Simulated scan of single mutants.
Amino acid sequence: MSLSKQLQGYRLTTAEILYHMPDHPGVLQSFVWQELDIAPRYPVLNGFLAFWARQIEGRLHSVRVGSAALISPGEMRHGSLLTLQ
């Protein structure tokens, strides 16, 4: 995962994609996709879903998305001063 992308606001994005099996449309299959993307527009995920709709036979049923920042501001805590004797 690219540090430069993370510094530009990309977040680790995970999507659970449910789709209809091409040979058995009544059966749903799950596919997990994970990539760095920018919330809330998710251009990378939307590009993948557009590719899926054009190239993959399994018709999309639903997509559940979660994302989390991998780089966050550090915490600074003030502790008590220890005196060594």
Score class of each variant (00 low, 15 high):
1 M>C: 08
1 M>D: 11
1 M>S: 13
1 M>G: 14
2 S>K: 10
2 S>I: 02
3 L>D: 11
4 S>P: 08
4 S>F: 06
5 K>I: 00
5 K>F: 12
5 K>L: 08
6 Q>C: 03
7 L>N: 04
7 L>F: 01
7 L>T: 11
8 Q>L: 15
8 Q>C: 11
8 Q>M: 07
9 G>S: 05
9 G>W: 04
10 Y>S: 00
10 Y>F: 13
10 Y>K: 00
10 Y>E: 03
11 R>K: 14
11 R>N: 09
13 T>P: 08
13 T>W: 01
15 A>R: 02
16 E>T: 15
16 E>V: 13
16 E>N: 15
16 E>D: 09
17 I>K: 09
17 I>A: 05
18 L>T: 00
19 Y>I: 02
19 Y>K: 05
19 Y>T: 04
20 H>F: 02
20 H>A: 08
21 M>V: 13
21 M>R: 11
21 M>C: 09
22 P>T: 06
22 P>V: 06
23 D>Y: 07
23 D>V: 10
24 H>E: 15
24 H>K: 12
24 H>F: 12
26 G>Y: 00
26 G>N: 08
26 G>S: 15
27 V>K: 15
27 V>E: 09
28 L>I: 08
28 L>F: 02
29 Q>M: 08
29 Q>F: 13
29 Q>V: 04
32 V>W: 09
32 V>G: 03
33 W>M: 02
33 W>I: 03
33 W>Y: 13
33 W>K: 05
34 Q>G: 00
34 Q>Y: 04
35 E>D: 13
35 E>T: 01
35 E>C: 11
37 D>C: 07
37 D>A: 12
37 D>P: 10
37 D>K: 10
38 I>A: 11
38 I>M: 03
39 A>Q: 10
39 A>D: 00
40 P>M: 01
40 P>K: 04
41 R>H: 15
41 R>A: 15
42 Y>L: 10
44 V>W: 05
44 V>R: 14
44 V>H: 07
45 L>T: 02
47 G>H: 05
47 G>F: 01
47 G>A: 12
47 G>M: 00
48 F>R: 15
49 L>E: 01
49 L>V: 04
50 A>I: 05
50 A>S: 10
51 F>H: 14
51 F>W: 06
51 F>R: 09
52 W>T: 06
53 A>V: 03
55 Q>D: 05
55 Q>P: 08
56 I>T: 13
56 I>H: 08
56 I>K: 15
56 I>C: 14
58 G>N: 03
58 G>D: 00
58 G>A: 04
59 R>H: 12
60 L>F: 07
60 L>H: 04
60 L>K: 10
60 L>A: 03
60 L>Y: 03
61 H>F: 09
62 S>I: 02
63 V>T: 06
63 V>F: 05
63 V>Q: 11
64 R>S: 14
65 V>M: 08
65 V>A: 11
65 V>I: 14
65 V>G: 06
65 V>L: 04
66 G>I: 07
67 S>L: 01
67 S>Y: 00
68 A>T: 13
69 A>P: 00
70 L>V: 01
71 I>A: 00
72 S>C: 03
72 S>E: 14
73 P>A: 10
73 P>F: 01
74 G>L: 02
74 G>Q: 11
74 G>F: 13
75 E>I: 07
76 M>E: 12
76 M>N: 12
78 H>M: 12
79 G>M: 01
79 G>K: 03
80 S>H: 14
80 S>L: 13
82 L>A: 07
83 T>W: 02
83 T>C: 09
85 Q>K: 11
85 Q>W: 05
